[in-house]
Write a protein that binds this DNA or RNA. Structure first.
Lengths: 332, 332
DNA sequence: GGGCGTTTTGCAACCGGTTGCAAAATTGCT
DNA sequence: AGCAATTTTGCAACCGGTTGCAAAACGCCC
């Protein structure tokens, strides 16, 4: 069926080793045999079987891309950038959709069966222990969009969520809001915990400002909308820092529905700056997370760890910045 | 490093074949050896190397998932459903991001190197020839969201875009619109061509209704917005059938910006019914494409074709229906 | 043309599994 | 217990490559 090394060798009149060598970088082949082999390969339409070679080289060039965020529009950008970035380095993404699963055992087993060279866990909601399970199994792994820890057991690339929380607080304070609130994602998500911590920590410096906190039951439009609707029935704050953009958009929808205007009646600041946030009919003021940089660094790091598996775990955090749009009143 | 068949065999005190057989469905092993092997495997933490076994069995359980739609929010749902659906059948998605590439040669080569069992091309914009290149290389392939042809060379699963165009036309006519228009995606996309055809075809039956056509330069928010802005500066139609939902949302944004209201001043009907269309602050009337059914059928079909490669190419089209929301005036 | 050092080449073993085949073990039956 | 039929087992070859090693070929110089 498929054309193999042997076929090419026979047609070119050389040994199988010769063929193998012309297709492996830096092997010793004379120009003459190389061209004979290349011609034969071209004639036969040969391309080497990456899986077979992985058996001896121990490298598959397969990277497990594990995520549980298949509902957040930001992650379409994330998948786009990851797949392109990996492809550009000759690596292939083997996608694992975690859905609501939270135990790494299954993914671990299947990624081991396919002997992936490395694993990227792309999730802001999974606990650090998830990625650590891969490392414990001896796989190079980086946790993208993961939680920062001072003594990481695993590479982490992402943002400083605590600093983001602080940044949101500062922004709201600078705008003169006196009654502010955090509307988080699910309380179990590590990103939400950290953002709340930073936000509240910063506001503790302003005892005159009233602060409250609530949690939506998911990082989703509906959850944001439901939560904001509930809040509006009590006495709402003047401005909200929402756990992420999609939550923010849900909140905006609830606000409009209630006949209130944003930013005149209530201010909203999101987090992520996903593509949709800039759409003119959404126009969300938000904190930009440098997704492309995070992904680039994640790939760099997993590649580097494949090369030197004993590499010390490292945390790379990228700075975020506020993107001014139309859902917060102007600074005084 | 990794624990192999041989290690398990030694520990269990049996031959390598015995171990192999306990892990292959329907092979002949006595209960006694099976339990010995299973214990040894458990102790050692063994899991069989899928790639090595693929060498002899000729099956990798890898499915190439090829797409160029990494910017349309609908495709996040698509990837979610595909990855889950494949995983549920013990198959693994190897993702290929085509970006703006339109030549199958590269993807073909790399999917062959990884000897995928089958290929799913998920795209509404690629021409039929793209998927055919895989079939010509002897790979089981299905084109999801692809173009319907009466004599397909390749399995196609999707919707009847011509019928959708007609359905949009009927809907607008039933609402009493007298000046209608089609605002397509890029003119080169097969889906746009067919939708235009159906739309215009149906309206040809209503000579009293004025029809016009224009094309946005991409299936994107910005392109839809730009195109609608341009249209509004001339004399706009009363209602538009937009090439897809994201284009529709761009158009809605332009309409709002111009100080016009939807549906009072201008009606919009989209196509896809992506999750966002139901968001209350978008509330887009649209034609629903049954994405989950399409994906389920695509997976069924690729699996069936792997089992019987000589299977005759088949087209499966799923019916669409109008989802009434708030961007079209009510039927008279 | 002979001798030496360097490249290139092929052989054969190996990577981690599977599988046809014949031998060994088990089972059922008289 | 003896025998035939059936099941289980291990051997060895194979899947499609890679690679250490020793032999062969080559290039260079005298």
């Amino acid at each position: 069926m498929a054309v193999t090394l042997k076929d090419v060798a026979e047609r070119a009149g050389v040994s199988r080793s010769a063929v193998s060598r012309t297709f492996t970088e830096g092997a010793s082949v004379s120009a003459k045999t190389r061209s004979k082999v290349e011609k034969a390969a071209r004639d036969l339409g040969y391309s080497p079987n990456a899986l077979a070679s992985s058996l001896t080289t121990g490298r598959t060039k397969l990277i497990g891309l594990v995520s549980n965020n298949f509902h957040n529009p930001l992650f379409l950008e994330v998948f786009d950038l990851f797949t392109r970035g990996l492809q550009d380095r000759g690596l292939r993404p083997l996608l694992v959709n975690l859905s609501q699963e939270t135990d790494p055992a299954n993914s671990l087993r299947m990624l081991r069966q396919y002997s992936v060279d490395g694993v990227i866990v792309a999730s802001s909601t999974l606990p650090p222990s998830f990625a650590e399970a891969f490392r414990d199994a001896g796989m190079p792994v980086v946790h993208s969009f993961g939680r920062y820890t001072t003594s990481p057991h695993v590479h982490v690339v992402g943002i400083d969520n605590i600093a983001c929380g602080r940044m949101a607080a500062e922004t709201l304070v600078a705008r003169g809001y006196r009654r502010v609130a955090f509307m988080g994602g699910p309380e179990t998500a590590t990103s939400t915990q950290d953002r709340a911590r930073g936000f509240l920590g910063k506001l503790a410096e302003h005892p005159d400002i009233e602060v409250s906190v609530s949690y939506a039951r998911a990082y989703s439009f509906d959850a944001g909308r439901v939560e904001m609707t509930k809040l509006l029935m009590q006495s709402p704050a003047e401005a909200y820092f929402c756990g992420d953009d999609v939550l923010s958009i849900g909140a905006l929808s609830a606000i409009a529905e209630a006949g209130l205007r944003c930013p005149e009646d209530i201010g909203i600041i999101g987090l992520n700056d996903m593509d949709m946030a800039r759409w003119q009919n959404i126009d969300l003021t938000t904190i930009r997370q440098p997704v492309a940089e995070i992904i680039g660094a994640s790939i760099d790091l997993v590649v580097a760890t494949i090369a030197r598996p004993d590499r010390h775990p490292e945390t790379r955090l990228f700075p975020c910045r506020v993107v001014e749009r139309g859902t917060l009143r102007p600074a005084r």
